[in-house]
Write a protein that binds this DNA or RNA. Structure first.
Lengths: 230, 230
DNA sequence: AATTCAATTATGTCTATACATTAAATGGTA
DNA sequence: TACCATTTAATGTATAGACATAATTGAATT
Protein backbone atom coordinates (compact mmCIF):
# COMPACT_ATOMS: atom_id res chain seq x y z
CA UNK A 1 0.00 0.00 0.00
CA UNK A 2 2.64 2.47 1.02
CA UNK A 3 4.33 3.93 -1.98
CA UNK A 4 8.08 3.84 -2.32
CA UNK A 5 9.79 6.47 -0.25
CA UNK A 6 11.40 8.10 -3.27
CA UNK A 7 7.98 8.54 -4.85
CA UNK A 8 6.60 10.13 -1.71
CA UNK A 9 9.42 12.63 -1.68
CA UNK A 10 8.92 13.39 -5.35
CA UNK A 11 5.16 13.74 -5.01
CA UNK A 12 5.48 16.03 -2.01
CA UNK A 13 7.60 18.52 -3.91
CA UNK A 14 5.51 18.09 -7.04
CA UNK A 15 2.45 19.17 -5.08
CA UNK A 16 4.18 22.09 -3.43
CA UNK A 17 5.41 23.31 -6.79
CA UNK A 18 2.16 22.85 -8.68
CA UNK A 19 0.11 24.45 -5.93
CA UNK A 20 2.35 27.48 -6.03
CA UNK A 21 3.38 26.84 -2.46
CA UNK A 22 6.91 26.71 -3.83
CA UNK A 23 6.91 29.45 -6.47
CA UNK A 24 9.27 29.53 -9.46
CA UNK A 25 12.77 30.42 -8.37
CA UNK A 26 12.22 29.26 -4.80
CA UNK A 27 14.96 27.23 -3.27
CA UNK A 28 14.31 23.70 -2.09
CA UNK A 29 15.95 22.34 1.05
CA UNK A 30 19.36 20.79 0.54
CA UNK A 31 19.56 17.04 0.07
CA UNK A 32 20.95 16.80 3.59
CA UNK A 33 17.91 18.52 5.05
CA UNK A 34 15.52 16.41 3.01
CA UNK A 35 17.17 13.14 4.00
CA UNK A 36 17.01 14.24 7.62
CA UNK A 37 13.35 15.15 7.30
CA UNK A 38 12.37 11.86 5.67
CA UNK A 39 14.90 9.77 7.54
CA UNK A 40 16.38 8.18 4.45
CA UNK A 41 19.67 8.02 2.61
CA UNK A 42 20.92 10.63 0.22
CA UNK A 43 20.68 8.41 -2.86
CA UNK A 44 16.95 8.16 -2.35
CA UNK A 45 16.57 11.91 -2.16
CA UNK A 46 18.86 12.37 -5.14
CA UNK A 47 16.87 9.97 -7.31
CA UNK A 48 13.61 11.72 -6.45
CA UNK A 49 15.07 15.12 -7.28
CA UNK A 50 16.64 13.80 -10.48
CA UNK A 51 13.22 12.66 -11.63
CA UNK A 52 11.80 16.13 -10.98
CA UNK A 53 14.76 17.64 -12.80
CA UNK A 54 14.34 15.54 -15.94
CA UNK A 55 10.63 16.37 -15.82
CA UNK A 56 11.67 20.02 -15.91
CA UNK A 57 10.04 21.03 -12.66
CA UNK A 58 13.24 21.86 -10.85
CA UNK A 59 16.75 22.95 -11.68
CA UNK A 60 19.79 21.81 -9.79
CA UNK A 61 22.91 23.89 -9.51
CA UNK A 62 26.02 22.62 -7.84
CA UNK A 63 27.09 24.44 -4.76
CA UNK A 64 24.04 26.70 -5.02
CA UNK A 65 21.24 24.22 -4.44
CA UNK A 66 18.00 23.11 -6.03
CA UNK A 67 15.42 25.59 -7.32
CA UNK A 68 11.92 25.50 -8.74
CA UNK A 69 12.26 25.98 -12.50
CA UNK A 70 10.82 29.08 -14.11
CA UNK A 71 8.39 27.95 -16.79
CA UNK A 72 9.60 28.94 -20.22
CA UNK A 73 8.09 27.71 -23.41
CA UNK A 74 5.15 25.56 -22.60
CA UNK A 75 5.00 22.24 -24.29
CA UNK A 76 1.87 20.21 -24.13
CA UNK A 77 0.84 16.77 -25.17
CA UNK A 78 -1.01 16.65 -28.46
CA UNK A 79 -3.36 13.75 -29.02
CA UNK A 80 -3.00 12.34 -32.49
CA UNK A 81 -5.89 9.91 -32.68
CA UNK A 82 -6.46 7.33 -35.34
CA UNK A 83 -9.45 8.50 -37.32
CA UNK A 84 -11.41 5.24 -37.41
CA UNK A 85 -12.11 4.81 -33.68
CA UNK A 86 -12.61 8.54 -33.32
CA UNK A 87 -15.41 8.56 -35.84
CA UNK A 88 -16.85 5.33 -34.50
CA UNK A 89 -17.00 6.98 -31.09
CA UNK A 90 -19.20 9.68 -32.59
CA UNK A 91 -21.62 7.00 -33.68
CA UNK A 92 -20.76 7.29 -37.35
CA UNK A 93 -19.46 4.68 -39.74
CA UNK A 94 -15.90 5.14 -40.86
CA UNK A 95 -14.51 4.33 -44.28
CA UNK A 96 -11.37 5.03 -46.26
CA UNK A 97 -11.31 4.97 -50.04
CA UNK A 98 -8.35 5.27 -52.32
CA UNK A 99 -9.02 7.84 -54.96
CA UNK A 100 -9.59 5.80 -58.14
CA UNK A 101 -9.73 8.73 -60.47
CA UNK A 102 -6.07 8.33 -61.32
CA UNK A 103 -5.60 4.61 -61.88
CA UNK A 104 -6.08 3.70 -58.22
CA UNK A 105 -3.98 6.65 -57.16
CA UNK A 106 -1.14 4.29 -56.43
CA UNK A 107 1.80 5.76 -58.19
CA UNK A 108 5.48 6.10 -57.68
CA UNK A 109 7.08 9.02 -55.94
CA UNK A 110 10.12 9.98 -53.98
CA UNK A 111 10.69 10.47 -50.26
CA UNK A 112 13.99 12.01 -49.25
CA UNK A 113 15.41 11.03 -52.61
CA UNK A 114 14.41 7.39 -52.35
CA UNK A 115 11.64 5.61 -54.24
CA UNK A 116 8.28 5.65 -52.49
CA UNK A 117 4.72 4.61 -53.04
CA UNK A 118 2.31 7.48 -53.54
CA UNK A 119 -1.22 7.09 -52.18
CA UNK A 120 -4.15 9.46 -52.37
CA UNK A 121 -7.43 8.78 -50.62
CA UNK A 122 -10.38 10.13 -48.67
CA UNK A 123 -11.58 9.44 -45.13
CA UNK A 124 -15.35 9.19 -44.76
CA UNK A 125 -17.74 9.47 -41.85
CA UNK A 126 -21.23 8.28 -42.83
CA UNK A 127 -20.48 8.80 -46.53
CA UNK A 128 -19.46 12.37 -45.82
CA UNK A 129 -15.88 13.10 -46.82
CA UNK A 130 -13.96 14.25 -43.75
CA UNK A 131 -10.39 14.47 -44.90
CA UNK A 132 -8.24 14.14 -47.99
CA UNK A 133 -5.00 12.30 -47.53
CA UNK A 134 -1.89 12.43 -49.68
CA UNK A 135 0.86 10.08 -48.59
CA UNK A 136 4.29 8.90 -49.55
CA UNK A 137 5.58 5.63 -48.10
CA UNK A 138 9.22 4.70 -48.45
CA UNK A 139 9.56 1.43 -50.32
CA UNK A 140 12.99 0.85 -48.84
CA UNK A 141 11.74 1.13 -45.27
CA UNK A 142 8.38 -0.55 -45.85
CA UNK A 143 8.60 -3.10 -48.68
CA UNK A 144 5.46 -4.82 -47.37
CA UNK A 145 3.36 -1.84 -48.38
CA UNK A 146 3.13 -3.40 -51.84
CA UNK A 147 1.21 -6.38 -50.46
CA UNK A 148 -1.04 -4.44 -48.06
CA UNK A 149 -4.76 -4.37 -48.70
CA UNK A 150 -5.22 -0.63 -48.62
CA UNK A 151 -8.71 -0.67 -50.03
CA UNK A 152 -10.08 -1.55 -46.62
CA UNK A 153 -7.69 -0.19 -44.08
CA UNK A 154 -6.36 3.35 -44.16
CA UNK A 155 -2.63 3.46 -44.90
CA UNK A 156 -2.01 5.28 -41.63
CA UNK A 157 -3.68 2.57 -39.61
CA UNK A 158 -1.88 -0.14 -41.52
CA UNK A 159 1.48 1.57 -41.02
CA UNK A 160 0.91 2.11 -37.33
CA UNK A 161 0.30 -1.60 -36.93
CA UNK A 162 3.12 -2.83 -39.13
CA UNK A 163 5.93 -0.28 -38.94
CA UNK A 164 6.22 1.40 -35.58
CA UNK A 165 8.08 4.65 -35.85
CA UNK A 166 10.36 6.28 -33.34
CA UNK A 167 10.30 9.91 -34.39
CA UNK A 168 7.76 12.26 -35.92
CA UNK A 169 7.37 15.89 -36.84
CA UNK A 170 3.94 17.40 -37.28
CA UNK A 171 3.02 20.74 -38.77
CA UNK A 172 -0.45 22.17 -38.30
CA UNK A 173 -1.80 24.99 -40.44
CA UNK A 174 -5.08 26.41 -41.69
CA UNK A 175 -5.55 26.39 -45.46
CA UNK A 176 -8.30 27.09 -47.94
CA UNK A 177 -9.62 24.02 -49.68
CA UNK A 178 -8.14 23.53 -53.15
CA UNK A 179 -10.73 22.92 -55.87
CA UNK A 180 -10.06 19.19 -55.99
CA UNK A 181 -10.12 18.87 -52.20
CA UNK A 182 -13.28 20.93 -52.00
CA UNK A 183 -15.11 18.65 -54.40
CA UNK A 184 -14.00 15.53 -52.52
CA UNK A 185 -15.12 16.97 -49.19
CA UNK A 186 -18.28 18.65 -50.41
CA UNK A 187 -16.98 22.15 -49.75
CA UNK A 188 -16.54 25.27 -51.78
CA UNK A 189 -12.97 26.12 -52.84
CA UNK A 190 -11.33 28.32 -50.22
CA UNK A 191 -13.37 27.00 -47.30
CA UNK A 192 -11.24 26.74 -44.14
CA UNK A 193 -9.56 23.39 -43.57
CA UNK A 194 -7.13 22.10 -40.98
CA UNK A 195 -3.98 20.83 -42.63
CA UNK A 196 -1.81 18.32 -40.80
CA UNK A 197 1.52 17.39 -42.33
CA UNK A 198 3.56 14.68 -40.69
CA UNK A 199 6.91 13.09 -41.36
CA UNK A 200 7.89 9.97 -39.47
CA UNK A 201 11.16 8.17 -39.09
CA UNK A 202 12.44 4.98 -37.67
CA UNK A 203 15.85 5.86 -36.41
CA UNK A 204 17.23 7.81 -39.35
CA UNK A 205 15.23 6.16 -42.08
CA UNK A 206 12.21 8.13 -43.29
CA UNK A 207 9.05 6.04 -43.23
CA UNK A 208 6.29 8.24 -44.54
CA UNK A 209 5.19 11.74 -45.29
CA UNK A 210 1.50 12.52 -45.14
CA UNK A 211 -0.56 15.62 -45.74
CA UNK A 212 -4.11 15.46 -44.44
CA UNK A 213 -6.66 18.17 -45.13
CA UNK A 214 -9.64 18.08 -42.77
CA UNK A 215 -12.97 19.86 -43.08
CA UNK A 216 -12.62 22.78 -40.70
CA UNK A 217 -16.17 22.42 -39.45
CA UNK A 218 -15.93 18.79 -38.36
CA UNK A 219 -12.49 18.18 -37.01
CA UNK A 220 -10.38 19.57 -34.20
CA UNK A 221 -7.18 18.73 -32.43
CA UNK A 222 -6.97 18.65 -28.67
CA UNK A 223 -3.85 19.11 -26.60
CA UNK A 224 -3.45 18.87 -22.88
CA UNK A 225 -0.85 19.88 -20.38
CA UNK A 226 -0.92 18.82 -16.81
CA UNK A 227 0.79 16.89 -14.08
CA UNK A 228 1.00 13.63 -15.96
CA UNK A 229 2.32 11.11 -13.48
CA UNK A 230 0.96 10.96 -10.00
CA UNK B 1 35.71 14.15 -21.48
CA UNK B 2 34.42 10.65 -20.94
CA UNK B 3 30.74 10.67 -20.27
CA UNK B 4 29.34 9.12 -17.12
CA UNK B 5 29.17 5.37 -17.33
CA UNK B 6 25.41 5.30 -16.82
CA UNK B 7 24.95 7.61 -19.78
CA UNK B 8 27.10 5.41 -21.99
CA UNK B 9 25.00 2.40 -21.13
CA UNK B 10 21.79 4.32 -21.82
CA UNK B 11 23.05 5.73 -25.10
CA UNK B 12 24.22 2.34 -26.31
CA UNK B 13 20.76 0.81 -25.93
CA UNK B 14 19.10 3.95 -27.26
CA UNK B 15 21.08 3.60 -30.46
CA UNK B 16 20.41 -0.10 -30.82
CA UNK B 17 16.69 0.48 -30.35
CA UNK B 18 16.37 3.46 -32.66
CA UNK B 19 18.42 1.80 -35.38
CA UNK B 20 16.09 -1.17 -35.29
CA UNK B 21 18.98 -3.37 -34.25
CA UNK B 22 16.89 -4.19 -31.20
CA UNK B 23 13.37 -4.39 -32.64
CA UNK B 24 10.20 -3.84 -30.59
CA UNK B 25 9.57 -6.77 -28.32
CA UNK B 26 13.20 -7.85 -28.28
CA UNK B 27 14.62 -8.78 -24.95
CA UNK B 28 17.56 -6.88 -23.52
CA UNK B 29 20.29 -8.64 -21.55
CA UNK B 30 19.62 -9.02 -17.85
CA UNK B 31 21.04 -6.43 -15.50
CA UNK B 32 23.59 -9.01 -14.39
CA UNK B 33 24.83 -9.49 -17.94
CA UNK B 34 24.98 -5.76 -18.57
CA UNK B 35 26.92 -5.04 -15.38
CA UNK B 36 29.33 -7.80 -16.31
CA UNK B 37 29.76 -6.42 -19.81
CA UNK B 38 30.38 -2.86 -18.64
CA UNK B 39 32.19 -3.83 -15.49
CA UNK B 40 30.02 -1.74 -13.18
CA UNK B 41 27.61 -2.15 -10.31
CA UNK B 42 23.97 -3.05 -10.68
CA UNK B 43 22.68 0.33 -9.47
CA UNK B 44 24.38 2.00 -12.40
CA UNK B 45 22.77 -0.37 -14.89
CA UNK B 46 19.42 -0.02 -13.15
CA UNK B 47 19.49 3.75 -13.27
CA UNK B 48 20.31 3.75 -16.97
CA UNK B 49 17.48 1.33 -17.72
CA UNK B 50 15.08 3.30 -15.52
CA UNK B 51 15.79 6.38 -17.58
CA UNK B 52 15.00 4.47 -20.78
CA UNK B 53 11.83 3.12 -19.15
CA UNK B 54 10.49 6.53 -18.12
CA UNK B 55 11.32 7.73 -21.63
CA UNK B 56 9.09 4.94 -22.88
CA UNK B 57 11.70 3.17 -24.95
CA UNK B 58 11.76 -0.01 -22.91
CA UNK B 59 9.46 -1.94 -20.66
CA UNK B 60 10.64 -3.81 -17.61
CA UNK B 61 8.84 -6.82 -16.26
CA UNK B 62 9.85 -8.53 -13.08
CA UNK B 63 11.04 -12.05 -13.44
CA UNK B 64 10.66 -11.83 -17.21
CA UNK B 65 13.26 -9.22 -18.04
CA UNK B 66 13.55 -5.98 -19.98
CA UNK B 67 12.06 -5.55 -23.45
CA UNK B 68 12.02 -2.95 -26.17
CA UNK B 69 8.67 -1.18 -25.97
CA UNK B 70 6.25 -1.30 -28.86
CA UNK B 71 5.72 2.38 -29.67
CA UNK B 72 2.00 2.93 -29.39
CA UNK B 73 2.31 6.60 -30.01
CA UNK B 74 -0.86 8.53 -30.24
CA UNK B 75 0.51 11.57 -28.53
CA UNK B 76 3.31 13.97 -29.25
CA UNK B 77 4.69 17.09 -27.69
CA UNK B 78 3.28 20.34 -28.97
CA UNK B 79 5.37 23.44 -28.49
CA UNK B 80 3.30 26.45 -27.55
CA UNK B 81 5.73 29.32 -27.90
CA UNK B 82 5.24 32.86 -26.82
CA UNK B 83 4.52 34.95 -29.89
CA UNK B 84 6.92 37.80 -29.20
CA UNK B 85 10.24 35.93 -29.39
CA UNK B 86 8.90 33.82 -32.24
CA UNK B 87 8.26 36.85 -34.39
CA UNK B 88 11.50 38.48 -33.30
CA UNK B 89 13.32 35.36 -34.46
CA UNK B 90 11.84 35.90 -37.92
CA UNK B 91 13.46 39.31 -38.00
CA UNK B 92 10.20 41.19 -37.59
CA UNK B 93 9.16 43.62 -34.91
CA UNK B 94 6.50 42.40 -32.56
CA UNK B 95 3.73 44.47 -31.04
CA UNK B 96 0.50 43.89 -29.18
CA UNK B 97 -2.29 46.43 -29.14
CA UNK B 98 -5.46 46.35 -27.16
CA UNK B 99 -8.41 47.02 -29.38
CA UNK B 100 -9.46 50.57 -28.43
CA UNK B 101 -12.60 50.59 -30.45
CA UNK B 102 -14.69 49.58 -27.47
CA UNK B 103 -13.50 51.80 -24.63
CA UNK B 104 -10.09 50.13 -24.46
CA UNK B 105 -11.69 46.76 -24.80
CA UNK B 106 -11.19 46.20 -21.09
CA UNK B 107 -14.56 45.14 -19.85
CA UNK B 108 -15.98 42.81 -17.30
CA UNK B 109 -16.89 39.24 -18.03
CA UNK B 110 -17.27 35.88 -16.39
CA UNK B 111 -15.01 32.84 -16.28
CA UNK B 112 -16.47 29.70 -14.80
CA UNK B 113 -19.10 31.79 -13.05
CA UNK B 114 -16.62 34.14 -11.44
CA UNK B 115 -15.89 37.74 -12.35
CA UNK B 116 -13.15 38.15 -14.92
CA UNK B 117 -11.45 40.83 -16.93
CA UNK B 118 -12.23 40.74 -20.62
CA UNK B 119 -9.44 41.77 -23.00
CA UNK B 120 -9.49 42.01 -26.78
CA UNK B 121 -6.38 42.81 -28.77
CA UNK B 122 -4.28 42.17 -31.85
CA UNK B 123 -0.77 40.77 -32.26
CA UNK B 124 1.34 42.49 -34.90
CA UNK B 125 4.45 41.53 -36.84
CA UNK B 126 5.88 44.53 -38.67
CA UNK B 127 2.55 46.39 -38.49
CA UNK B 128 0.84 43.44 -40.10
CA UNK B 129 -1.92 41.96 -37.91
CA UNK B 130 -1.06 38.32 -37.22
CA UNK B 131 -3.66 37.25 -34.70
CA UNK B 132 -6.77 38.46 -32.92
CA UNK B 133 -6.96 37.59 -29.26
CA UNK B 134 -10.01 37.46 -27.04
CA UNK B 135 -9.23 36.70 -23.44
CA UNK B 136 -10.87 36.34 -20.06
CA UNK B 137 -8.70 36.54 -16.96
CA UNK B 138 -10.08 35.54 -13.59
CA UNK B 139 -9.96 38.44 -11.17
CA UNK B 140 -10.08 36.10 -8.21
CA UNK B 141 -7.03 34.14 -9.34
CA UNK B 142 -5.12 37.10 -10.75
CA UNK B 143 -6.02 40.31 -8.92
CA UNK B 144 -2.79 41.93 -10.13
CA UNK B 145 -4.11 41.98 -13.69
CA UNK B 146 -5.76 45.28 -12.84
CA UNK B 147 -2.38 46.93 -12.30
CA UNK B 148 -0.63 45.35 -15.28
CA UNK B 149 0.51 47.57 -18.13
CA UNK B 150 -1.15 45.66 -20.92
CA UNK B 151 -0.63 48.34 -23.53
CA UNK B 152 2.92 47.20 -23.98
CA UNK B 153 3.07 43.54 -23.05
CA UNK B 154 0.64 40.98 -24.36
CA UNK B 155 -1.61 39.59 -21.64
CA UNK B 156 -0.36 36.08 -22.39
CA UNK B 157 3.26 37.09 -21.86
CA UNK B 158 2.38 38.98 -18.71
CA UNK B 159 0.44 36.04 -17.34
CA UNK B 160 3.19 33.57 -18.16
CA UNK B 161 5.62 35.66 -16.15
CA UNK B 162 3.37 36.39 -13.21
CA UNK B 163 1.01 33.45 -12.84
CA UNK B 164 2.53 30.16 -13.90
CA UNK B 165 -0.20 27.68 -14.59
CA UNK B 166 -0.19 23.99 -13.93
CA UNK B 167 -2.80 22.67 -16.29
CA UNK B 168 -4.07 23.61 -19.72
CA UNK B 169 -6.45 22.39 -22.38
CA UNK B 170 -5.99 23.49 -25.95
CA UNK B 171 -8.34 23.08 -28.88
CA UNK B 172 -7.13 23.68 -32.41
CA UNK B 173 -9.50 24.21 -35.31
CA UNK B 174 -9.64 25.87 -38.70
CA UNK B 175 -12.19 28.66 -39.09
CA UNK B 176 -13.12 31.26 -41.61
CA UNK B 177 -12.29 34.81 -40.56
CA UNK B 178 -15.28 36.67 -39.16
CA UNK B 179 -15.83 40.12 -40.70
CA UNK B 180 -14.36 41.93 -37.71
CA UNK B 181 -11.37 39.58 -37.49
CA UNK B 182 -10.83 39.85 -41.24
CA UNK B 183 -10.61 43.62 -41.10
CA UNK B 184 -8.20 43.54 -38.16
CA UNK B 185 -5.92 41.05 -39.94
CA UNK B 186 -6.23 42.49 -43.42
CA UNK B 187 -8.07 39.47 -44.77
CA UNK B 188 -11.34 38.88 -46.54
CA UNK B 189 -14.17 37.39 -44.50
CA UNK B 190 -14.05 33.60 -44.72
CA UNK B 191 -10.31 33.37 -45.32
CA UNK B 192 -8.81 30.36 -43.52
CA UNK B 193 -7.49 31.00 -40.03
CA UNK B 194 -6.04 28.79 -37.34
CA UNK B 195 -8.08 29.07 -34.15
CA UNK B 196 -6.46 28.17 -30.86
CA UNK B 197 -8.62 28.09 -27.77
CA UNK B 198 -6.97 27.48 -24.44
CA UNK B 199 -8.15 27.21 -20.89
CA UNK B 200 -5.57 27.21 -18.11
CA UNK B 201 -5.76 26.38 -14.45
CA UNK B 202 -3.58 26.67 -11.46
CA UNK B 203 -4.49 23.70 -9.37
CA UNK B 204 -8.27 23.85 -9.56
CA UNK B 205 -8.65 27.56 -10.03
CA UNK B 206 -9.30 28.70 -13.58
CA UNK B 207 -6.80 31.36 -14.64
CA UNK B 208 -7.71 32.34 -18.14
CA UNK B 209 -9.57 31.43 -21.28
CA UNK B 210 -8.22 32.69 -24.55
CA UNK B 211 -9.30 32.38 -28.16
CA UNK B 212 -6.66 33.33 -30.69
CA UNK B 213 -7.38 33.54 -34.41
CA UNK B 214 -4.22 33.44 -36.53
CA UNK B 215 -3.83 34.29 -40.20
CA UNK B 216 -3.67 30.90 -41.86
CA UNK B 217 -0.93 31.98 -44.22
CA UNK B 218 1.54 33.15 -41.59
CA UNK B 219 1.27 30.89 -38.60
CA UNK B 220 1.71 27.22 -37.95
CA UNK B 221 1.99 24.91 -34.99
CA UNK B 222 4.74 22.36 -34.77
CA UNK B 223 4.65 19.18 -32.75
CA UNK B 224 7.39 16.69 -32.29
CA UNK B 225 7.73 13.20 -31.00
CA UNK B 226 11.01 11.53 -30.43
CA UNK B 227 13.62 10.43 -27.98
CA UNK B 228 13.98 13.70 -26.15
CA UNK B 229 17.26 13.37 -24.30
CA UNK B 230 20.44 12.29 -25.98
C1' DA C 1 -5.81 -32.89 -17.20
C1' DA C 2 -6.48 -29.16 -14.27
C1' DT C 3 -5.31 -26.73 -10.18
C1' DT C 4 -2.64 -25.17 -6.53
C1' DC C 5 1.56 -23.95 -4.41
C1' DA C 6 6.24 -23.16 -3.83
C1' DA C 7 10.84 -22.16 -5.80
C1' DT C 8 13.34 -19.34 -8.80
C1' DT C 9 14.77 -15.36 -11.15
C1' DA C 10 14.52 -11.03 -12.62
C1' DT C 11 13.53 -6.24 -11.52
C1' DG C 12 12.47 -2.46 -7.65
C1' DT C 13 13.96 0.03 -3.83
C1' DC C 14 16.99 1.39 -0.29
C1' DT C 15 21.33 2.06 2.61
C1' DA C 16 25.85 3.76 3.77
C1' DT C 17 29.84 5.32 1.94
C1' DA C 18 33.23 7.30 -1.24
C1' DC C 19 35.09 10.43 -4.31
C1' DA C 20 34.33 13.77 -8.29
C1' DT C 21 32.72 18.15 -9.95
C1' DT C 22 31.41 22.73 -9.92
C1' DA C 23 30.44 27.32 -8.79
C1' DA C 24 29.59 30.43 -4.95
C1' DA C 25 31.99 32.49 -1.16
C1' DT C 26 36.11 33.93 0.94
C1' DG C 27 40.18 36.24 1.60
C1' DG C 28 44.65 37.85 0.26
C1' DT C 29 47.29 40.77 -2.84
C1' DA C 30 48.40 44.32 -6.21
C1' DT D 1 38.78 48.86 -5.45
C1' DA D 2 39.74 45.15 -8.57
C1' DC D 3 41.60 40.85 -9.40
C1' DC D 4 42.84 36.12 -8.58
C1' DA D 5 43.64 31.92 -6.11
C1' DT D 6 41.70 29.09 -2.43
C1' DT D 7 38.25 27.10 0.28
C1' DT D 8 33.97 24.91 0.75
C1' DA D 9 29.24 23.63 0.34
C1' DA D 10 26.33 21.85 -2.57
C1' DT D 11 25.11 18.41 -6.32
C1' DG D 12 26.80 14.24 -9.56
C1' DT D 13 28.18 9.65 -10.02
C1' DA D 14 29.41 5.34 -8.52
C1' DT D 15 29.92 1.03 -5.42
C1' DA D 16 28.56 -3.26 -2.92
C1' DG D 17 25.33 -5.16 -0.48
C1' DA D 18 20.57 -6.06 1.38
C1' DC D 19 15.85 -7.01 1.22
C1' DA D 20 11.27 -6.42 -1.32
C1' DT D 21 8.22 -7.67 -5.01
C1' DA D 22 6.30 -9.86 -8.78
C1' DA D 23 5.73 -13.22 -12.38
C1' DT D 24 7.16 -17.38 -14.54
C1' DT D 25 8.29 -22.03 -14.03
C1' DG D 26 7.70 -26.45 -12.55
C1' DA D 27 6.47 -29.76 -9.12
C1' DA D 28 2.92 -31.62 -6.18
C1' DT D 29 -1.79 -32.46 -5.49
C1' DT D 30 -6.35 -33.04 -6.64
Amino acid sequence: MTRPLGDRIRVQFERQILSGDLPPGARLPTEQEIMARFGCSRMTVSKALSALATAGLIERRKRAGTFVARPRVHSMVLEVPDLAPLIAARGQTYAFRLDRSEELAVREGHLAGRPARHLVGVHFADRQGIAVEDRLVSLAAVPDIARADLAREAPGTWLLRHVPWTEADTRITAVGAAPQEASLLGLSPGDPCLCVERRTWRGRDPITFVRQVFRGDSYELVAHFGPGAS
